[in-house]
């Protein structure tokens, strides 16, 4: 069972057990991690599950996909660590993943 750590903007840290089949977004929602809204429910269509992937994890997680890029691009807080967490599938490879949450979802 991969564990994922979410660090809120104020430094609060939440480490949760995720299942294969979850996304980084759904694992957060199931475990009541604050700071992720996921208004479209995982459809890559709202941009409110924005996270920053810690640099050491970026090569494993990879970059945004075709439909994700334009959504991310509209977020003024976007940087090169930005991903939409609904588009990151949880796998064993991601065991130990650390993502940071923005102060606000847009």
């Amino acid at each position: 069972m991969p564990t994922i750590t979410y660090i809120e903007h104020d430094g609060n840290t939440h480490t949760v057990d995720a299942d294969n089949g979850d996304t980084v977004m759904s694992a957060a929602i199931k475990n009541m991690v604050p700071g992720i809204d996921a208004d479209c429910g995982g459809g890559c269509s709202c941009g409110t599950c924005h996270v920053f992937v810690e640099p050491e994890w970026q090569p494993v997680v990879g970059g945004p996909g075709e439909f994700e890029e334009p959504m991310l691009d509209l977020n003024p807080e976007r940087n090169d660590q930005s991903r939409l967490s609904c588009q990151i599938d949880v796998t064993d490879e991601l065991d130990g993943l650390v993502v940071r949450l923005p102060e606000f979802q847009f």
């Binding site: 809204d37 996921a38 208004d39 479209c40 429910g41 459809g43 269509s45 709202c46 941009g47 409110t48 334009p70 959504m71 509209l74 606000f104 847009f106």
Partner: peptide, 20 residues
């Protein structure tokens, strides 16, 4: 549950900019 998952703001790149 999932109270924010509605379409009043639309969705995608045109999603309401003033929603917040």
């Amino acid at each position: 549950p999932n109270v924010r998952q509605h379409l009043s703001f639309g969705t995608g790149i045109h999603r309401c900019m003033g929603n917040r």
